Simulated scan of single mutants.
Amino acid sequence: MPSDVARRGAHRGPKRRGRGWIIFAWAALATGVLVGLGAVGLFAINNSSTFTSTFTGGSTSAADTPTPTPTVVPTVNPAATVTILNGTTTEGLATRAGDQATTDGWSVGAEANASATDIAVSTVYYADANNEGAAKGLAATLGGIAVAQSNQFLGTDLTAVLGADYKDPGNG
């Protein structure tokens, strides 16, 4: 080897032209794939998008359409076991409300004081879903108080707990 050549280290061939663009293209493709997978993953997690198959024609089935919930009509059920509890400090409130319910066709089994006297909202409770109409009917009889399904009072069909918002029938 001649001494005037100033080579040092291993000899490498010249770099090919356009090599930087190839690396950029691969990086852009990888970024696009990752962003696409992230978007699909977020849609799947949030369930905010529906993907339809091209094989099924994108039609929706009858199971996808919501069925309307039937409206329960308030009824008077004299066979229902009714308990009325006074959740206030007003003396005789349960008795007066029971008299009003009896006058309107309800069979009131018990009128008593509730375990607490600081109830704010009057509510008719029912455990069995079949008694919802009767609960709404009793609530309407007692002046349009709230109705709720609960397993708290299992001994009776309907339990009305009168609270501070109840309009006493003996006071006007």
Rank of each mutant, 00 (worst) to 15 (best):
S3Q: 14
S3G: 13
D4W: 06
V5H: 06
R7N: 12
R8W: 01
G9Q: 06
G9M: 03
A10E: 03
K15M: 07
K15Q: 09
R16D: 09
R16Y: 02
R17C: 00
R17S: 14
G20L: 11
I22T: 13
I22G: 13
A25M: 12
A28P: 00
L29A: 13
T31D: 05
G32A: 12
L34A: 15
L34S: 06
G36W: 08
G36T: 10
G41D: 11
L42G: 01
A44Y: 09
I45H: 12
N46D: 14
N47S: 14
T50V: 14
T52P: 00
F55M: 11
T56Y: 11
G58N: 07
S59P: 01
T60E: 09
T60C: 14
S61C: 07
A63V: 15
D64P: 05
P68I: 11
T69M: 14
T69F: 06
P70N: 10
V73H: 05
V73S: 09
T75N: 10
A79T: 14
I84Y: 04
T89E: 08
T90M: 01
T90Q: 01
G92E: 09
L93T: 03
A94K: 01
A94M: 11
G98H: 02
D99T: 15
D99S: 15
Q100F: 00
Q100V: 09
W106A: 05
S107A: 12
S107N: 15
A110D: 07
A110V: 09
E111A: 03
A112C: 11
A114R: 04
S115D: 08
A116Y: 10
A116N: 11
T117A: 13
I119N: 03
I119E: 06
V121Y: 00
T123M: 08
T123G: 02
Y125C: 02
D128N: 15
N130L: 11
G133W: 09
G133C: 05
A134R: 01
K136N: 09
G137L: 04
L138C: 12
A140W: 02
A140M: 05
L142W: 02
L142N: 02
G143Q: 08
A148L: 09
Q149F: 01
Q149I: 06
F153H: 09
L154P: 15
L154V: 10
D157R: 00
V161N: 02
L162K: 05
G163F: 04
D165Y: 02
G170A: 15
G172W: 00
G172V: 07
